[in-house]
């Protein structure tokens, strides 16, 4: 791909090029952020295909508005826009639902907590339990798993302090450990 030599540019340099109608800079930003933005958007939409369409729309808007936009830092702008687009989408469309059948796990009353942790199913179980966390804990935990997003990026996206991000992440993991333990033992 021709974008190779553009990869050395920083986000803000690309932004300046974009301002001058440089399509290659748009493509470079796209390649750099498409996957993390799509992942980020699925935190809200819970469906990767939907999120991919939304992120493509985001880049079309970025191109259309390149002259008007006054963006200082590209990354926070992209993630904030992705969040807005995803939430707007949710207002218009109901989120995709998991079915009980998909989430069914085999009865596990015979497992000890240690076995649960070493069991292959446990990761699947954690995944289904993540959606049961309080919304804020779930968002922070999932956002922290995207490599391009640092703690300092999460805070403004959610309108909370970095310290609160840390505490919320701690609470999310604590809640998951409790859920994992009780759901492994009960019924």
């Amino acid at each position: 791909m021709k974008t190779n030599n553009y990869n050395v540019f920083s986000d803000e340099e690309l932004l300046a090029l974009l301002h001058q109608d440089d399509t290659l800079s748009l493509q470079t930003i796209f390649t750099r952020y498409y996957t993390p933005l799509a992942h980020f958007s699925t935190i809200f939409t819970k469906d990767i295909t939907t999120s991919e369409v939304l992120i493509a729309d985001l880049f079309i808007k970025l191109w259309d508005n390149r002259k008007q936009l006054e963006i200082r830092l590209l990354k926070p702008y992209l993630f904030q826009s992705a969040k807005n687009l995803s939430l707007n989408h949710l207002k218009k469309h109901k989120p995709k639902l998991d079915t009980f059948e998909n989430l069914q796990t085999r009865p596990s009353e015979h497992l000890t907590p240690f076995e649960i942790l070493t069991n292959k199913e446990s990761q699947q179980r954690i995944l289904s339990l993540i959606n049961l966390l309080p919304e804020r804990q779930r968002e922070v935990l999932l956002m922290s798993r995207i490599e391009q997003i640092e703690k300092t990026n999460i805070a403004p996206l959610l309108g909370i302090t970095v310290r609160t991000v840390e505490t919320t992440l701690y609470q999310a993991i604590k809640s998951l450990r409790t859920l994992l333990f009780t759901s492994g033992k009960k019924i």
């Binding site: 990767i48 942790l117 990761q123 954690i126 993991i173």
Partner: peptide, 30 residues
């Protein structure tokens, strides 16, 4: 347990499959 949870949470994300198609749509728009 914490390591397992951190590992598992990453698996939450599915890989995008339509990156090229979506870029083509953007390119057409441009």
């Amino acid at each position: 347990e914490v390591i397992l949870i951190l590992d598992a949470a990453k698996l939450y994300y599915r890989d995008p499959k339509n990156q090229d198609n979506n870029w083509n749509r953007i390119a057409a728009h441009i």
